[in-house]
Amino acid sequence: MQSETVKMNVSVWRGNRRDGGYLSYKVPMEDNQTILDVVTWIQHNEDPTLSYRFACRVGMCGSCAMMVNGIPRWTCRTHVKKVLKDNAIKVAPLRNLPVIKDLATDMDRFFDNWNKAGGVHHSDQTRNDEIELIDPNKPARKIVDAGIECINCAVCFAACDTVSGNDQYLGPAALNRAWTLVNDEKDADRPGILDLVSGNGGCHNCHSQGSCSEYCPNELDPMVAIAGLKRETMRHLISQGKTDA
């Protein structure tokens, strides 16, 4: 005789940019089940029009992040057992980004900020130049290594209250990226990056309360990266003042 399947109560935010609300679903519990599995089950069995994003399902691509019981998480790497509370789960689109539909957000601001913070490689070499050797043990290279594994999931962006309060703020991921480039010997425009992160929405708006570092599923530390940027930009400002004078 088969034992009866236990079901959990899942409320999922449904709607678009203008309006919406939570709908409830009963989803059968499995031994091994992630939040992404739950959302997929609802789409397959209850409502095929439920919209959400995912790709790799193993914490590599950064596309599946959502708010789970109010906390930003990679849904593909969050086990139901870890977050189930009173047999219930609440799934919502990532905070701080406009909703396109249901659980899919418009991530333009997040990605545009990446560029606004100078987050592209600036090269002064050609394909004919010798490839420079970088010593992996150099302190600057270690700083780069500490921040380079960001997968652009926007979990930190959703966790940041300064992003909510200040719509120009570049946010933790873009600034963390800028910090890796400022420490990258191969980047040819490091002073330019310092200027880009010194403007109205720049690193100086960060309140250093560390929600970004607390919630980054990759255990990166954008708060410390931003503190580094604040230090370097101050040095840059003072040295600029000296050369201007």
């Binding site: 120009q168 929405g201 720049g202 101050m234 400002l237």
Partner: peptide
């Protein structure tokens, strides 16, 4: 909203 100059002034 806070650029590097204002931040500098506030710390100073």
């Amino acid at each position: 909203m806070l650029d590097a100059r204002l931040y500098f002034l506030q710390r100073l």
